[in-house]
Amino acid sequence: MSIEQITKAIGDESRKKILDLLTVGELPATALFEQFEYAAPTISRHLSVLKEAGLVNTRREGVFIYYSLNKETFKELEEWLEAFVPVKIKVKQERTERATSPRPPKKENTFDKFQSEF
């Protein structure tokens, strides 16, 4: 898929909402339709645009169609966007992630507690 097609698909608020909903995992079309006040054919068209851009995968099970995110396309988009992110920001982000990562709690030394009581 072309980056232009991907970015056009992501540029619509309704399609962004669909992508957000799919971050929890695969969902049937009916579950997606319920999240909007639009008619089903309108949402169906949005889903078609996302599928044509390669952002979602479909799986048919009987009469139901299930949608899920196509992670490969998002990786492709991420790789393309990396060229626009300065190295300085990437390094700063990595430092921040390391600094905010949870640290294991200090183990209490029972001997130290015993010593402080005297």
Rank of each mutant, 00 (worst) to 15 (best):
Q115L: 13
K75W: 14
S48E: 12
E4M: 11
R60A: 01
G25H: 03
K90H: 03
E37V: 10
K75R: 11
V85I: 15
L47E: 01
P86Y: 06
W80L: 05
E82Y: 11
V87W: 04
I10A: 10
Q5P: 06
K106G: 06
V85E: 00
L22H: 05
T73V: 08
K17P: 05
Q115R: 13
G54M: 09
R98C: 00
L21N: 06
L77S: 07
I43R: 00
L47N: 03
Y67W: 11
K16V: 06
D112Y: 01
L27Y: 04
L50W: 02
A53D: 07
G25L: 00
G54T: 02
I6P: 09
E78P: 01
F36W: 13
E37H: 12
S2W: 01
I6Q: 12
V56C: 01
E97R: 00
P104I: 08
E78Y: 06
N70I: 00
V87H: 10
D20V: 09
P86S: 05
V85N: 01
L81S: 03
F33N: 02
S68D: 13
E52I: 10
S44Y: 06
A53G: 10
E108Y: 04
Q115Y: 09
K113T: 12
K75Y: 15
A9P: 06
L81N: 05
V49N: 04
P28A: 15
K75L: 14
V91G: 03
K113G: 09
V91F: 03
R60D: 01
F111S: 15
E76K: 01
K90W: 00
R98I: 01
A31H: 15
T100K: 07
S116P: 00
L19G: 07
L21A: 08
R45K: 14
P41N: 03
I6M: 13
E79C: 00
E26R: 09
D20L: 15
V87G: 04
R98N: 00
E13A: 14
T96A: 15
R15N: 07
A83S: 13
E37A: 11
V85S: 03
K71Q: 02
T30E: 11
F114E: 13
L50A: 03
Q93R: 13
S116D: 04
S101G: 02
E13R: 13
K51S: 08
T30A: 14
L22P: 05
L50C: 05
K88S: 06
A99M: 09
K71H: 04
T96D: 12
T30N: 07
Q5V: 03
H46F: 08
L77T: 05
E79G: 00
R95G: 00
N109L: 09
K51Q: 07
S14M: 10
L32H: 10
D112K: 08
I6L: 10
A39G: 13
G62Q: 09
K71T: 06
L69R: 02
A39N: 14
P41I: 05
D20S: 15
I18F: 09
Y66W: 11
S2D: 15
T23K: 08
K17G: 12
V24C: 08
V85K: 00
F84I: 02
E78K: 03
K8G: 13
E94F: 03
L50N: 03
T96G: 10
E61M: 09
I43V: 14
E52W: 02
